[in-house]
Every structure is written in structure tokens, then in C-alpha cells.
Simulated scan of single mutants.
Amino acid sequence: MAPYTIDRGSNWRREAVEQWLFGLDLVSPALRTDIVTAWVSAWASSPYDTLEAMPFTPDAPDYPLMSHVNDVTRTGIDLAKRAAADWGDRIDLEVLVPILILHDVDKPLLYVRKDGGAMYSQLAGELPHGVIGAMLLKDLGFAHGIVSTVATHATNAPFHGSSFEAYVLHYADLFSADHAFMTCGKTPFYRRHRS
């Protein structure tokens, strides 16, 4: 059985997702519809009644996924604009924006609330973060570059994409994650030491 169901209905969910997501106005109407459908499908397949209940991570369960996604999208767009201005990098918003908005689309399926916190779901023990989101995006017909970047963006992925968009996502995601950790009194990535 698939870990999610594609949900093209749920008009109240579609409206909530459209009101939440930053950057939808930067992509074509067809792509906007697909992005919203991806988030509605993840939400409808998750245990969460509201978008606000979805945690960014069990390590910072009080930081909402909603905030992280918009933080990453805003930061990524700013970084891409800076790269274009300073280095002449070309920005394709039809590729970059969906990657930024959808990079964590599988998190509603990977975490569950318990005792006021959050923990990993059974599904999180079966497939790594990014892969489930990539499966969903592939089923919805997203371009390979978007699917592969979402699949390999996690810091613990065995390899990472080499595209401009993957590079921008990496720094925007870690910048936002560190903000979330510091907000919740946790050690940010840049202060963690590996042995």
C-alpha cells in the first residue's frame, strides 16, 4: 500500500495550502496547481488535522513545518537573486521555486505527535526523508530535476545533486533549520561537531 494518496479535491485543504505557501505567484498556474496538490496529498495522508500541527522535526517539535517551508523559499529566492546579480547564474523559477516549496513535502508522513512532542513514524524507518516526497512528486508528474533534488537534499543522503537549484536549496534549508533550532533552544547545525 502506498504511503500517500493523491488528493486533487479537498477544496478547504487547497485553500489553506494556497494561503500558506509563499512563492506560488512566481510559477505558472499549472505548476502552482501541482505544488498545491502535492501538499494537499501529503497533508490528507498524514495524521494532522491542521497545517499548524505539523512539526519541522522531532528535534524542534514546537517549530512549525509551515514556517520552515516559507523560510526556505524566501531565503532560497534571495540567494538565487544574489547569485544571479553577483555571478551571473541563471534562475529558472519554474524549477527553483517548486524545489524550495516541496523539499519537505514528505515530513507530514514522517513524524507523529506524541506526549506534547514529536517522534518518527513507522514510515520514517522504512524510507529516508526526501525519497517519499520524491515518489509523490514523480506520481504527480513533476520534472526529473525537481524530483531528484527533493530525493537527495537531506543532509544525510548518500549523495547530493550538483545543480544550481540543489546548491541553493542546501544553504537555504540549513540556514532556516539553524534558525529553527536556535529558536527552540537547540544546537544549530553549524555548531554541531561530528566525530
Rank of each mutant, 00 (worst) to 15 (best):
L96A: 00
V72K: 00
S163C: 10
N70Q: 03
D89E: 13
F175V: 08
Y63H: 07
T33M: 11
E126C: 12
R191C: 07
R192L: 13
D115Y: 12
G9T: 15
H179P: 00
D78L: 14
D106V: 09
V36H: 01
G133Y: 02
D59P: 01
G23R: 04
L51C: 04
V168L: 12
A143K: 08
G88E: 13
D34L: 15
G130F: 13
M135V: 11
P47L: 06
G76K: 03
F22I: 11
I99Y: 01
E126I: 15
D49Y: 03
A84I: 13
A134F: 00
A143E: 12
V95A: 03
V40K: 01
F56Q: 02
I77W: 01
L174E: 08
V168T: 04
A118I: 07
A53E: 13
S28G: 13
S28M: 14
A166E: 07
L137K: 02
V69D: 00
E52G: 10
R194V: 15
K138N: 08
R13F: 10
H103R: 05
A172V: 05
F189M: 14
L79V: 10
D34Q: 14
V168K: 02
P188I: 13
W87A: 14
L24R: 07
A157S: 15
D62V: 12
Y63R: 06
W20P: 01
G130V: 11
D71W: 08
R14D: 04
